[in-house]
Design a binder for these strands. Sequence first.
DNA 1: GAGATATACTTGAGTGGTCAATGATATACA
DNA 2: TGTATATCATTGACCACTCAAGTATATCTC
Lengths: 143, 143
Amino acid sequence: MRFLRAHAAITRQLNADLIASHELTLSDYEVLLHLADAPERALRRIDLADRVLLTPSGITRLLNGLECAGFVERGDCASDGRVVYARLTEAGLEKLREASATHLAGVGALFTERFSTEELEQLGWLLARLPAAGPEGPACAAD
Amino acid sequence: MRFLRAHAAITRQLNADLIASHELTLSDYEVLLHLADAPERALRRIDLADRVLLTPSGITRLLNGLECAGFVERGDCASDGRVVYARLTEAGLEKLREASATHLAGVGALFTERFSTEELEQLGWLLARLPAAGPEGPACAAD
DNA sequence: GAGATATACTTGAGTGGTCAATGATATACA
DNA sequence: TGTATATCATTGACCACTCAAGTATATCTC
């Protein structure tokens, strides 16, 4: 209960901050982040879906927005005609850099300034035992 | 990051379980739970909004569904003409009882069986320091 | 007691996402 | 080689929710 409330409140907050300052959804941000971290700055849509916990159709629609804004571009795969890569553009990388300032400040206010290093470690350790918390993604150190 | 992922995955899971077995959203469930715990089993809509972290309009629409299903009824307030109470009906209480079996089993699988009592305490203690985690609500012990 | 201001709720329009169905390609195997 | 099955992506229909605006009632202050 408290866990659920806590998260809900936090995501809202971070999301609102991001939208207010950069017109980017928290999901948008996460997608950009994962792309920036991937080899060639490109990822198959389905892998993206896995990483940000969205359905494939959610990813399609989200990427429509980012492509339209010029932050991400589509790319075909030579060896598999079914896949369509999402590749981060220079503009997207730039946008991510700007947005990360906001986001990291928000995260800082919520976590870093609120807990000691040991507490953060403890928290991370506990949460890692939840299913689907999955392997480390980019920027885990900060969150 | 991990925190956000963990929560997102968990809420989805619990929500899906609840919908599959009782056609109830996780928010619906939380509303019923708060009502059951309130004096007279009734709450002002705005208080409900605070407790389940939804906007007033979200509550209005959610309650439309629950009223339509007969789980909640509207009630005027004698001393303040603006407020409309949401009161849990017998059917609603019954529904809550059924649903809580599912929900608590889900929570159990995710938390209770995964952490020791001390760890749960630790987790609760850490999370309580997050903003908006707010005061204890009903059933906090289990979550 | 008459505004001005604040509070409780609802509504219309829009958003971010889901699910189920579809099309296209890839893989496995008789 | 051809058919069955699985996988990747997209689309249409829908849902839960938000925001901004509107209505109605309450409270405060002069």
